[in-house]
Design a protein around this nucleic acid. Structure first.
Lengths: 337, 337
DNA sequence: CTGAAAGCGCTTACAG
DNA sequence: CTGAAAGCGCTTACAG
């Protein structure tokens, strides 16, 4: 592989001049620039990025840690982080934790060796206990999509999940629903559940613990089983709030399989606003969260701090979800009681 | 940040010795090793990976290029590639092309600067024309999940897609189906379609062009529209072969919405064997492809070549798909003709 | 078992 | 506008 030195010799100049024409910085006469460029082309010279990194202290790569990519929410985060990074010329180093605390720990440890310029952690799964490993990282670290027990030691850009749950609950209350089930991944989605409860509490109503159904994200087939449990329960429900759209879709399927009309017999509200949900039958009412803007803001926070070579401001920003009313929710059916 | 030199001074030894204890290579007396380790701990020393890379010529990171991560097939590839990489101590640099040839081009160009030890490209979307950019890459390159016009210039580990289509078609033929529709993303899935046609041709039957329905992957809502078109057609179909499970699921949904019994009125065969398909209602018959083993073999091929520091053998390996019969396929209903 | 030297391929002031 | 030098922080032979 041709080196900068070789290009310099061929062009009859010094390394510095080659460096100048490659970087476009420092001025070089048109004539020598052309000579250098010719040498570069003839030799097929490509700068060695590792050497450049050592000299400049910048690797132009940012690491992103997510629980999984097989989850529409996180795959959207990955896509948008990559977009934002690429616009600034950065590469993306990806690590997934897969609900494995040991793996998460290794990941953070191996990342702490400054081979990246910044680190973004998405989602609070399995990482709570390992954040301390990052205490003396040599690069800025930020958190996003963090739902429970938001750390105070690092900057975070996340969603107001509690408010999202509240929006879902309030919508259902406005439609007159009094008895609803909540299907949630617990404890991760606790804030969404609490939000919905708060909306009911305003009207003096409660969502009892028996009406909270816990889904296990590690077993996809479990999602449907839970949906079945909901309808098998004797709670005389008129609506279901699912704290993830993927769950909401399973509930819709289970309802249809039992001949329940949506929203005639049962209303369904989801959470996330993933693409499939808008083209479901019927299209689902859901709580939309600004995933892409969250991803983008996180990257900007981090890159700003890289540019200024200072720790990022220890800010916490909470993005607001938004209720999207489609056709899976309607007035509560008159109780036959 | 502490440097190796500083650790050496503190421990009263030379850099080399510190390097030895850090790497575990070259022997060091227990006593000095302990002194060095103490200095490392006191200073919070972490080796600078970039410097190490420049010295060794290895970055311990491998790049993976995929069309998208919002696709269950590719997200499985990403996961398994990451697994295989991590086992060997490598990091994953991820790039997605998003059906944007310009973006794909930029990606490959920016990767060519030897900041990675190897490159794996999954999927043939948008890359056909840019492979030449990799001609003088300083690291090994391999292809996987390549379906059309497999290049001869690079090693590839892929699926026998044509055979997958054949398995689906043969299964349907064995059940007595004569008139089927194929829903496919074209031209990408052409081999799967051809495979199915081949199975029919053995019995002197053809799948006419009108029975091939093209789905547009860039518009998720289009998938359902296509499913509707299939049932609106006047082809008197008894089965549908969808070249992706996600499509098969939409077809199942459309069938149910019209009151068609699956498999009583219509049989459905998918392709991929993604997790959701096994817990659908009914569970879908599908062509399972060894995605994880493909990902793993690709990584091993690449890493072997990195270890030997030679070009990978220009091999082409074709992994065999397997038909998984579940409950969405049954005997063709007796025609009422 | 430990030390002194050279080198990986760039960039960054600093002279001229 | 161009050149000579030092340095980024490691590792790799090579002596002792």
């Amino acid at each position: 592989m041709a080196t900068m030195q070789e290009v310099a010799e061929r062009a009859g100049v010094t390394k510095q001049t080659v460096s100048n024409v490659v970087s476009g910085r420092g001025r070089v006469s048109t004539a020598t620039a052309a000579r250098v460029q010719a040498a570069i082309d003839e030799l097929g010279y490509v700068p060695n990025l590792v050497a450049r990194s050592l000299a400049t202290g910048a690797t132009m790569t940012v690491a992103l840690v997510v629980p999984s990519v097989a989850n529409p929410f996180y795959s959207e985060v990955v896509e948008e982080v990559e977009n934002a990074l690429r616009e600034q010329g950065y590469h993306l180093l990806l690590g997934t934790t897969r609900q494995d605390a040991g793996r998460a720990r290794e990941l953070l440890t191996s990342l702490a060796g400054r081979s990246v310029d910044a680190l973004l952690i998405a989602g609070d799964h399995d990482l709570e206990d390992h954040l301390a490993l990052l205490a003396d990282a040599r690069f800025p670290v930020a958190l996003c999509a963090w739902e429970n027990d938001i750390p105070h030691t690092l900057p975070v850009v996340t969603i107001d999940y509690d408010n999202g749950g509240f929006l879902a609950g309030r919508h259902l209350r406005e439609l007159g629903h009094e008895r609803i089930a909540v299907v949630a991944e617990m404890p991760h989605h606790a804030p969404r559940v609490e939000g919905a409860r708060r909306a009911f509490a305003r009207d003096g109503l409660t969502i009892p613990d028996e009406a909270i159904f816990v889904s296990d994200p590690s077993r996809p087939e479990h999602e449907f089983e839970v949906a079945e449990q909901v309808f098998d329960s004797s709670l005389r429900l008129t609506a279901v709030f699912a704290t993830r759209d993927v769950l909401a879709l399973r509930i819709l399927e289970a309802a249809r399989l039992r001949g329940l009309a949506v929203p005639g017999d049962i209303s369904i509200v989801g959470f996330d606003d993933i693409a499939e949900v808008g083209s479901a039958h019927p299209p689902l009412t859901t709580v939309a969260i600004p995933t892409r803007s969250m991803a983008r803001q996180s990257v900007e926070l981090l890159l700003r701090s890289v540019a200024d070579s200072m720790r990022p401001d220890n800010t916490m920003s909470l993005l607001r979800p938004r209720l999207i009313v489609r056709s899976s929710t309607g007035p509560a059916p008159r109780a036959a009681d």
